[in-house]
Simulated assay, not measured.
Amino acid sequence: MRGVVMHAPGDVRVAPREDPRIEERTDAVIRVVAACVCGSDLWDYRGFEAGRETVMGHEYVGVVTEVGSAVSSAAPGQYVVGSFVISDNTCPICLDGYQSKCVHASFVHGTIGTQAEFARIPYADGTLVPVPGEPDEDQLKSLLAASDVLGTGWFAATTANAGPGKTIAVVGDGAVGLMGVLAAKELGAERIIAMSRHTDRQAMAREFGATDIVAERGDAGVEAVKALTDGLGAHGVIEAVGTQESMMQAINCARPGGYVGYVGVSHGVELPGPELFLAEVHLMGGPAPVRRFLPDLVDRIWKGEINPGRVFDRVLPLDEAAEAYAAMDRREAIKVMLKP
C-alpha cells in the first residue's frame, strides 16, 4: 500500500509500506477513506522532534475490511471513526473517561500512521466508533474532524468549564482552537473570545460561535481580554498552541478561580512557580480522551446539529501529501484533508 513517511524535517514522501494484517484477536483492518494533516504533525515537519523516519497520520475515517475473532462492535463493510490514541475502553482509567491514558494506550502517530491506504487498529472495540451509514462528503469531513481536532477542542472546552453564563477565551486559531470555539458554543458559553490575528480564521471563528475577536498577543492580549471582562478575566481559557507564550497568555487571561484547558502539544513550556501560585486558576489538559466524546460527536454530526468539517479548507489526494504539509506550514490552509 501507499503511505506518508516523514524522512527528515521538511521531507515528506508517499512511499510503499507493508500492507496491514490482523495480528491480534482484538484488531481490525480498515481501508482509510479520509485522513488529514494535523497541526501537531508540523512539529515534526519543522524539525522540533528528533530526526527519525516516521509513519505519519493519526486522524481517520475508514471502512472495515477485516476483524479479529474478538471484535464485536464493527463488521466488514462498516464505516468507522476512531481516536488518535488506541484504547481498550474497559480499563479503570478508560472507565474514568481518560482513554488517552488507557493501560494499553499507544499513539496512532508514528506506530500505525493513517495517512495511508489501509491501517491496522488494535483494540478495535475500544478505539473505533461505527457510523450509522455511508457519509456524504460534508459528513465525511466532520467525522474526520471528530477523530482528533473536534474531540480535542471539546475536551479543552470541557476542562475550561465552558457552560451557560460563562465567558471563554481561546488562545490559538488553528483547527483545534476553532473547534474549541465550536465546542464552547455547543456547551452553552455566553461569550467566546477568539484570539486571532488572521482575518480568514477570525471569520471562521465567528461562524463557529465567537462573539469577540482579540488580535493582540502576550501581555497586550491579556489586557484586551480583561478589558472585555470588566477587568476580571475569562471564566475559562482554552490553550491550543503549546508554547511558553501561549500557556502564560492563557493562565493570565483567566480570572481568579478560573479554568485553563490546555491541549496544545507543549514544546519548551516551563511554568514559573510564583506566577502560577498567585494566579489561583485550575489547570487541566494533555492528550485529549477523544474516545470519551466520540459517540456523542458522531451522533451530533449525523443529525446535522454541528458541521465541524468546515475547518477543512483544502482537499488533496494522498499522493500530494507533501503539498498539504507545505500549505499548512505556510499558513495557506487551516487544515488539509487527504483522500487515499
Rank of each mutant, 00 (worst) to 15 (best):
V260C: 09
G304Y: 08
V14S: 13
L144P: 02
L232D: 05
R292Y: 14
V33A: 14
D148K: 03
V80G: 05
K303C: 04
V311C: 10
G151S: 14
E186R: 15
C36N: 15
A184Y: 01
L297R: 10
A146R: 12
C253W: 07
K101S: 15
E66Y: 02
T114F: 05
V37W: 02
I301T: 01
H282M: 10
A15M: 15
R300I: 04
G264Q: 09
A254E: 10
P308H: 09
A194V: 01
E59I: 06
G177A: 09
V176F: 08
E305D: 13
L140A: 04
L228V: 08
G258P: 11
G133E: 11
Y45A: 09
R255W: 07
P274V: 13
A156P: 04
R52G: 04
E18H: 09
S147Y: 04
G188L: 07
A169I: 10
H104G: 03
Q139I: 06
K226D: 02
E137D: 14
E216T: 09
A224T: 03
P274C: 04
Y98Q: 12
S106L: 15
W43N: 10
G218E: 10
Q249T: 14
V33H: 13
M204W: 00
T54I: 12
T158D: 13
P132A: 05
